[in-house]
Amino acid sequence: MTATRIFGTLAHRAAILAFITFALFPLFWLLKVSVTPNDLLYSEGVRLWPSATTLDHFRFVLANSEFPRFFANSLIVSGTTALVSTVLAALMGYALSRFRFRGKMWLAGLLLVTQMFPLVMLVAPIFKILSPLGLTNSLTGLILVYTAFNVPFASFLMQGFFDGIPPDLEQAAMIDGADRFTAFRQIILPLALPGVAATLGFVFTAAWSEMIFALMLISGSEKATFPVGLLTFVSKFSVDYGQMMAAGVLALIPACLFFLLIQRYLVQGMTAGAVKG
């Protein structure tokens, strides 16, 4: 009895460990290459850890490349997109969850439809729309596009969280003397924080790693975001893997910090709202 339980626990832990190893190995490789001196990169063959390490790549990337600007651009775009999308999605999700209104089915259907097209198909029309408005080659334009594409799914995400909160609660608040918006703000929103955190995280990472629009709508390095900036390490004749990986490691930092910040809410949220991966 106890023996089988111990074995079961061990097997369970081993499976988790195997999965984590599998998931984190590429990140480890990223880190490894970023600290490997250029002369050892090809000469040492495949090793888990180089015989000597260096921070030269990081120094170079921070001091001599345009990477800090890409990084700042990405931070502005992703942060604003996450914030704006989550506010809109919270309001929309609440309406979808609580109100009956004419055309609700159509609206929900339309939101779903926007999720069905591959983004590539939409690049050209979006460019056509943004260009006369002067919104190409602009961070505002990117934020606009990212927000538009993230709000539908984020709304469904938020709706799921609101559905999990009994309507009795805001009705009790309304009887206590709150109007609907006060009840939403003071009673429902605090309870939906896991959902807000999950949505923020989802939209932030989606925007942080978005490539297609960033590539198509932005020309030159002035307004480039980090995924596009990474490509500048690919020159005509060679790829500077060390610097590229160092940039990659740096780019992981905000995402990690962000999730560290919201993970307290997210752990509840994952189980409550089933986040799309």
Binding site: P166, D168, L169, Q171, A172, A173, M174, I175, D176, G177, A178, D179, I187, P190, L191
Partner: peptide, 30 residues
């Protein structure tokens, strides 16, 4: 008139207590 304008109190079957508030805050919310 919305509920707020009717000055009535209601006890729900589910109690509908505000989970993030203490007992005192629940009672004093109104």
């Amino acid at each position: 008139l919305p509920p707020k304008g009717r000055d009535i109190a209601m006890v729900f079957q589910s109690y509908a207590l505000y989970p993030h508030m203490s007992v005192a805050d629940n009672m004093s919310y109104s």
